[in-house]
Design a protein around this nucleic acid. Structure first.
Lengths: 245, 245
DNA sequence: TACTTGACACGAACAGCGTTCGCTAATAAA
DNA sequence: TTTATTAGCGAACGCTGTTCGTGTCAAGTA
């Protein structure tokens, strides 16, 4: 009935004019995921809010819910997108230890590259196709190494937990460094400085072992610690393969 | 000047009567922590809000901030309180493997007993006295086992991460079960049922190993998985102690 | 005993969150 | 051309952690 307008009668001024040019944005799940991932990379997981994503797409938060069930699902979708980047080691002829190590490092690399998405890795049992791709590879590798299917299943579970846990822990430092507003170097210096001060002033009678080895406790970097734990697990798997048990 | 009231003159009705009996609540950090812990145990970490704690103490949220810097600190304090419950294995004569295993299980037991506090275990580098008590014990144990201080430091770090990571993962199921409103049995049946259905319908050509061993993948329970990972790590430590390396 | 002082208690408010409701408008179908 | 469907989205709800300013009591001082 707005046709009357076309007949020369101006619309009453109190009736809001129609949107000047409604180009009908083309929202899609894909677009929302990409936008969310970009925000995650640039500003961290805490900044990833529905409102923030919507703002980036020049719309309101309500618009997102037509493509995504809720925030949790969005984060899972972003996680799956990230996992896609993991490249599986191709050298099928190499010893299983090397292939496993390569896979673990590659997973860690990808997760670490995307801010604190690792928080989602640990919080969800990943069931998307990309997660399954990794699982299939790792599972097969462990069975080829000689583990029984049951043991391989458990080992895969624990190894995944280890990778997710380590990157999650790392992401916390990342988030704090970001929140503190300092540079990475400043933050690390400040943080380790505080821990060192704290450890050095501990009463040696109550904590003799710690007090005697403060240097050793402070020494290891992130990557060295990851590597050490990976070694432990791999050695543990090797122990299971020995005929003695 | 309210004495005039006692002289027989009634207070003007528009002047609000004094608080019926203002016993001046005795807030304290201790009380706040205990209340928070109770809420955590009964309703889970998600229900632990500043408002909820204040409500329980018949006051407003602002009152808490005189005793606690912020919510993060409150959770850390609650965590420290929980850790207090961990009893250190006393049998100093037992093999280090047994003592380490006992400590890990005891830590897991306590963390699991308090709903999803494990989320805090992983999110914070614990520096309170009770955490240090555990660290001192574990560190000493590992050195006595024969590790170098550096290796003992790394092993302690990885073992702590493992325990925290495992209990954290468990706490997620706990939180979901609670949120779902179902009983534990219903939830587990539903959840594993869904996972099983999902795994069984996977295309075997893309995921041959997984498809061939669905039963094995579903089999392990929480405790069996924890034990398996603990075995891996301990065996890994033993491997480091062998003269060959 | 009267007064001052300092610390704690706390109502009210702020800014931000995830999510839902219900209307608008553009498209697809008839 | 008319109708049905549906994505887009403004506005609101109820929740969160935290801060501000005021109120009020208890202890210390004169």
């Amino acid at each position: 009935m707005e046709r009357s307008e076309a007949a020369g009668v101006p619309a009453p001024p109190w009736r809001k004019p129609r949107k000047p040019a409604a180009p009908r944005r083309q929202l899609s799940q894909e677009l929302i995921i990409e936008t969310g991932l970009r925000i995650l990379d640039e500003e961290g997981l805490d900044a990833l809010t529905m409102r923030r994503v919507a703002q980036e797409l020049d719309t309101g938060p309500a618009s997102l819910y037509a493509h995504v069930a809720n925030k949790e699902e969005l984060i899972e979708l972003i996680y799956e997108k990230v996992i896609e980047e993991v490249r599986l080691p191709e050298d099928a002829g190499a010893p299983w230890q090397d292939r496993l190590r390569a896979l673990a490092w590659e997973s860690r690399r990808v997760l670490t590259a995307h801010a604190d998405i690792a928080r989602a890795a640990l919080a969800n049992v990943p069931t998307g196709p990309n997660s399954l791709r990794l699982a299939e590879y790792m599972f097969k590798l462990l069975i080829e190494a000689g583990l029984t299917p049951k043991a391989a299943s458990l080992a895969m579970d624990r190894l995944s937990l280890y990778i997710a846990g380590d990157t999650f822990e790392g992401s916390l430092h990342f988030a704090r460094q970001r929140a503190s507003g300092w540079s990475v170097e400043e933050y690390l210096r400040e943080y380790f400085g505080q821990v060192e001060t704290y450890l050095r002033q501990l009463p040696p009678d109550r904590f003799p072992t710690i007090a005697a080895h403060v240097d050793d406790l402070l020494e290891g970097g992130d990557e060295e610690r990851f590597d050490f734990g990976l070694d432990l697990i791999i050695a543990g798997i090797e122990a299971r393969l020995r005929p003695s048990r």
